[in-house]
């Protein structure tokens, strides 16, 4: 099958590649670009481990073809840290609140949470739970992920994070 030339901006850098039309975006990111932080967990668009940010949308990169992302601007987990290399508020929140265990869902979870906080900077717990409902975590039971996102929201909003009483 003839290959197609694609160009896109990934984590701020212009990238290009030759792909088959059927090449899934997740494989282009992981294999062509060698950005392996984006994971594959279910392949049926349920688990969200492959979530990346594409032109301001959280998308499951296992259910979109690389050719569809022609000209798009994409952020993967490798592009989330602050410019000075320190952890972003969300990355720090996940660490501080123990929002991860095996780490496999974490990149997708953080990318999704980042977009959620951009759209809703002060979400309630219910809004957070709805907001990450396209991402499955098998280890944490979500409770500490919710706290991690609350921690990040507080930090971004410049207020002290107050952990809810049990």
């Amino acid at each position: 099958m003839a290959k197609t030339h694609v160009t896109m901006k990934v984590n701020g850098a212009e990238v290009e590649g030759l792909v088959e039309p059927r090449t899934l975006l997740v494989h282009f990111i992981r294999e062509n670009l060698q950005l392996t932080g984006t994971h594959i967990g279910c392949e049926t668009t349920h688990c969200g481990a492959c979530t990346v940010d594409l032109d301001g949308m959280s998308v499951k990169s296992c259910t979109i073809f690389a050719v569809q992302a022609e000209g798009a601007s994409i952020t993967t987990i490798e592009g989330v840290a602050n410019a000075d290399g320190t952890l972003s508020a969300l990355q720090e929140g996940f660490r501080m609140m123990h929002g991860l265990q095996c780490g496999f869902c974490t990149p997708g979870m953080i990318l999704r949470a980042q977009r959620l906080l951009q759209e809703n900077p002060s979400p309630t717990e219910a809004e957070i739970r709805m907001g990450i409902s396209g991402n499955i975590c098998r280890c944490t039971g979500y409770q500490n992920i919710v706290k991690a996102i609350q921690y990040a929201a507080a930090k971004i909003n410049g207020v002290q994070y107050q952990e809810a009483a049990e």
């Binding site: 993967t76 989330v80 990355q91 660490r95 501080m96 991860l100 780490g103 974490t106 953080i110």
Partner: peptide, 13 residues
Amino acid sequence: KRVEDARFTQGKG
């Protein structure tokens, strides 16, 4: 806090 998290939160697992 976990040692592992520095790499897992940055996609460097």
